[in-house]
């Protein structure tokens, strides 16, 4: 076949370039193409349960006890789903490279070379577009969720200015080696080493430390903020589930870091009020 015959003689022929669908169709007819696609789908379905398994592990000590934690779990779920296809495709190529395309062993370099594919414009463009779109999706999702979580935590104070909102509670959290102290400034400076929270009311935390950096982690509530010496950090949450939850220190703070844990008790408003009364605090509202 000489190259001359490939050149169409009609001047308008270049405008009738073959549609790329035709190329894709021919690509799909190659023996490995469909196998890799099928392998991708199979591996994808094998990975699919991960989306729920991750959440199951996260919920081992109790289902989410706040909107924030629900948002976090939703994010984890969506991110897992989104990353499965691309992971499955890469794994499929790895697997097919070992079982599908020919492989040889031995001490001498192979006599026969493989096809010299230096690049593939369609493949490269597809990958770039897909990965950029994916990254854009992750960024947008993350920014929106972050704004929402910020509104849920930092926004607690402004929320009680809204008519019909229940008033918020302020709690001063102090970390020191290796205990947590919770002070309720609105209740006559009542202090406690267990965190009592009223159900369904926004709580606003001021957090600081008396010695080194600690990290105030209310696990099932999805609250986490450093307790820094010499600085006050702020966060907040609205607990929407009754029960006992965990506070752990999530920043290495010395010898007994592992034991710097305490409990969270989420109580109904009545029970919370009576706890405040019994502990000598003053009821404000």
């Amino acid at each position: 076949m000489s190259a001359d015959t490939l050149i169409p003689e009609e001047p308008e022929a270049p405008t009738n370039r073959p549609p790329s669908m035709e190329r894709v169709r021919s690509w799909l007819q190659r023996p490995y193409a469909r196998k890799i696609l099928i392998l991708t789908v199979v591996i994808g379905f094998l990975l699919l349960p991960l989306a729920w398994l991750l959440l199951a592990a996260m919920n081992q000590t109790g289902a989410p006890a706040s909107e924030i934690m629900k948002d976090i779990e939703q994010t984890v779920f969506v991110f897992t789903l989104v990353s499965i296809p691309i992971t499955a495709f890469v794994f499929a190529v790895l697997v097919y490279s070992l079982i599908g395309w020919r492989q040889i062993s031995g001490d001498e370099p192979p006599m026969q070379d493989s096809p010299a594919i230096r690049t593939n414009t369609i493949g490269v463009i597809l990958w770039t577009v897909a990965s950029s779109l994916l990254a854009m999706f992750l960024v947008v999702w993350g920014l929106v969720e972050l704004a929402q979580i910020t509104a849920n935590s930092y926004g607690s104070i402004s929320a009680d200015e809204q008519p019909g909102q229940k008033s918020s509670e302020i709690i001063n959290v102090t970390g020191q080696q290796w205990v947590w102290t919770f002070e309720y400034p609105e209740h006559n400076g009542l202090t406690s080493d267990i965190l009592y929270l009223p159900l369904d009311r926004p709580v606003y935390f001021n957090v600081t430390s008396k010695d080194v950096i600690h990290n105030f982690w209310a696990v099932e509530l999805g609250v986490k903020i450093d307790a820094n010496p010499g600085a006050i950090t702020q966060t907040g949450v609205t607990a929407n589930k009754l029960g006992t939850f965990n506070v752990r220190c999530a920043e290495l703070c010395g010898m007994h870091h592992a034991f710097m844990q305490t409990q969270i008790q989420v109580l109904e408003q009545d029970a919370f009020d009576s706890w405040v009364r019994e502990s000598g605090g003053k009821k404000t509202s």
Partner: peptide, 27 residues
């Protein structure tokens, strides 16, 4: 941080593209 997954993804693309239809000398 999430933008950095794009250039890292390029490196993965190059790797799987090189695996693509290659006869692997499995040393």
């Amino acid at each position: 941080t999430e933008m950095i997954s794009i250039p890292v993804g390029f490196l993965v693309l190059v790797a799987i593209g090189t695996f693509w239809r290659g006869t692997a000398w499995t040393r």
